[in-house]
Amino acid sequence: AGGAEFPTERWFWFDPPFHPGQSVLLHRQPDNVWRIDFQLGWDADPEEEKKPENILPRVQALLGPHAQFELDWASVYTFACLRMDRFVHGRVVFVGDSAHGVSPFGARGANSGVQDAENLAWKLDGVLQGRASAALVATYGPEREYAADENIANSTRATDFITPKSEISRLFRDAALHLARDHAFARRIVNSGRLSVPATLHASPLNTPDTDAFAGPQVPGAVLLDAPLTRQGQPTWLLRALGPQFTLIVFGAAPGWAFEVPQVQVLQIGVEVQDSEGLAAQRLDALPHTAYLVRPDQHVCARWRAPTEAAVRAALARATAAHA
């Protein structure tokens, strides 16, 4: 849509005057191409709706009577949220869209597909390299099925807000939109698709339950929060400092035995890298000697206020399904 004066940010309309009773989504893509999604009714004929003579008037009504544009591509799709009952079937593992589908809100399809692949990749690598039990691959199932359920729940909530399924749902949606014009609390209710975030794998069999008191969200199963660090005076980030295998993050100098644990890279905050702004300690609720064991896919699998060699080795064995 050349010449359209819209910002690059994503725009969403609920029941706009140029497409009454339905929603419209617009966002910019590369090469001055704009994607516009017009919601259609259930009785719409997909073949008819794809014809230029039906598309062009809608686009013109959105962009204005004087906007110049060319139609590049058109298709019709249906919102759907679904998943397989199980993602692991013996030696066959389903990943991404082959395992689950969500409505296109919040970039959940692409992100969850990448997270699926990362979850499976380190487990397969561990088994193939002899560092983990074959049972580790089976844990892909419950972990990523849980994440898929979370994505589907969030996607369904967005779809239900965008397309109310009942009169009371529509009343709630319309009231939230009306209040959002003047009241900040209502803006948090407006749901055109919450952006995807990684699932916290609370019930993962690879987690070691806490034995010490911690505050904050970095529980076993959570994805490690990033934080700015410095290394030799140069800025870097916590996640960049993690190794390709397991990483034991220690706040302060690590005990000597930590460097003898197989498969584990030790990262000493305050020694190799500096927490100059204090954000790593703040986000991980860390005190001197606090330690976190982080998986190759950056999920926390254990944490301690003062780790022992036996505790770290036991957590590593659990995280690699060595006891299965």
Results as ranks from 00 to 15, higher is better:
210 D>M: 12
202 H>D: 07
310 A>E: 08
247 T>N: 08
295 R>W: 03
279 L>A: 02
267 L>T: 01
229 L>F: 04
220 P>H: 06
302 A>E: 10
225 L>Y: 10
281 A>S: 10
233 G>N: 05
265 Q>C: 01
279 L>G: 00
249 I>G: 15
221 G>V: 05
247 T>Y: 07
204 S>K: 06
228 P>L: 03
293 L>Q: 09
257 W>P: 13
298 Q>T: 10
302 A>G: 13
264 V>N: 04
202 H>Y: 09
235 P>A: 02
210 D>H: 13
317 A>K: 12
285 D>Y: 01
183 H>G: 05
244 P>S: 03
233 G>S: 12
208 T>Q: 07
310 A>M: 08
183 H>A: 07
204 S>F: 03
183 H>Y: 11
219 V>Y: 11
292 Y>I: 14
200 T>Y: 06
315 A>F: 05
231 R>I: 08
308 T>G: 13
230 T>W: 06
199 A>N: 06
318 R>V: 05
241 A>V: 07
314 A>K: 12
236 T>V: 12
227 A>Q: 15
245 Q>A: 12
195 L>V: 15
305 R>K: 12
209 P>Y: 06
266 V>T: 05
197 V>P: 15
266 V>A: 03
218 Q>P: 15
216 G>R: 08
221 G>H: 04
292 Y>N: 08
265 Q>R: 09
266 V>Q: 02
205 P>W: 05
280 A>C: 05
290 T>W: 04
281 A>Y: 05
273 V>M: 00
266 V>N: 02
215 A>G: 11
221 G>P: 14
305 R>V: 03
292 Y>H: 11
317 A>S: 15
273 V>Y: 02
203 A>V: 14
272 E>K: 05
266 V>R: 00
255 P>G: 04
283 R>W: 11
214 F>H: 07
244 P>D: 10
277 E>F: 09
208 T>V: 12
256 G>V: 07
269 I>Q: 01
283 R>Q: 04
256 G>Q: 07
206 L>H: 07
305 R>D: 05
283 R>I: 09
237 W>N: 15
291 A>H: 05
259 F>Y: 13
241 A>W: 15
311 A>C: 06
268 Q>I: 02
184 A>E: 08
257 W>D: 07
219 V>L: 13
243 G>A: 02
205 P>L: 03
223 V>A: 09
271 V>R: 01
316 L>D: 02
299 H>C: 09
254 A>S: 03
280 A>M: 06
256 G>W: 06
274 Q>A: 03
186 A>F: 15
299 H>K: 06
237 W>Q: 12
285 D>E: 00
242 L>T: 06
263 Q>V: 03
249 I>V: 10
198 P>A: 06
194 R>D: 11
272 E>F: 00
237 W>K: 12
295 R>L: 00
